[in-house]
Design a protein around this nucleic acid. Structure first.
Lengths: 167, 167
DNA sequence: TCCGTCATGTAATATGTTACATGATTAG
DNA sequence: CTAATCATGTAACATATTACATGACGGA
């Protein structure tokens, strides 16, 4: 779904695909080389993408677009959560309050960092008039990241305050 | 780490462990049967847990607690993101605005639901005086969930408003 | 010439879920 | 007595990452 989706934006090589997924979808999606190339081969076999010219860029076919629409319409399957930060804090009594404070401070700094990256990303998107029809949707994903980062900062502040009363 | 951590709260059978992980850590961690039993066998082999009595509850050893402290102190390794909702919204032009609106409405309802679950969880925790030393840390994880859910609701509202101007 | 990047792919490995097999115990 | 839950475990399968192998090309 991610590979087909990226190819709706523009034709790309597998290598460029990996960069696009990392740089543009990076904050909510990821794929490794080992997934992308076999996926492209399979999609080609099924006629959903074609390999063009000597530079071997991949282009999505009409059938591929139809298939993508099907995939997008399927129910979202939840990925099992694995939040190492929260697991450590939950076990804070064993880990120690001081270490928890450090984790929270780092988490806050990370969230600030992410906010800056979202600003850059939003600017980048706005500066591409050829993708005007996509930008409203793309901005939604950036906005999600921003809301999430702001929430993380507020939570970290509250949590640090709460922990100052412990032990 | 999750298995050892859960056993610091109280000795448990593997079955109870799975329920505790699902019910208490569920909103930020998950383990399946296929992970828990082999992990317990390995932890027993290494002397980090012991199997007691005829009801075979597992108890963490002193060495196990030391090992857990080591594990908790190791750097948090980020899990690759896989957010099916954001991927679909990013490809909103292909999926269609109407479907995006539905996704956002559902996401908002889900977040509301989660808020209620967090309220219940917080009450449950507060009602267990024998775990008083743990509750400050446990409340942090609930608070994280609450902040995240509130952010999701605000984001969904904003996004629905933004999409009303599209097409 | 040599290094970094572009480019494709495979193999080894790691991780994780689901389904199945088995049997005890408990509640209706 | 029978259905649900408790309890442990394994095997098959699915998924995903990392490292490796290969080679082209452009710039310092």
């Amino acid at each position: 779904m991610a590979v087909l989706g990226a190819l709706t934006i523009e034709p790309m090589t597998g290598y460029a695909l990996r960069q696009a997924i990392r740089d543009v979808l990076g904050h909510f999606w990821s794929e490794s080389f080992g997934q992308i190339y076999p996926a492209l081969a399979e999609l080609e076999r099924q006629g959903f993408v074609t390999r063009d010219g000597p530079d071997t860029t991949f282009t999505i076919t009409d059938e591929g677009t139809r298939h993508l629409r099907d995939l997008l319409s399927q129910p979202i399957q939840a990925t099992p959560p694995r939040n190492g930060l929260l697991l450590r804090l939950f076990l804070g009594r064993t880990l120690g309050v001081e270490a928890c404070r450090t984790l929270l401070t780092t988490a806050k700094a990370d969230a600030r960092q992410r906010l800056q990256e979202f600003d850059a990303l939003a600017e980048e998107m706005a500066a591409e008039p050829e993708h005007a029809a996509n930008t409203p949707f793309w901005q939604l994903t950036v906005s999600a990241g921003r809301h999430s980062a702001h929430a993380a900062i507020a939570w970290a502040d509250e949590s640090l305050a709460a922990l100052s009363h412990v032990e």
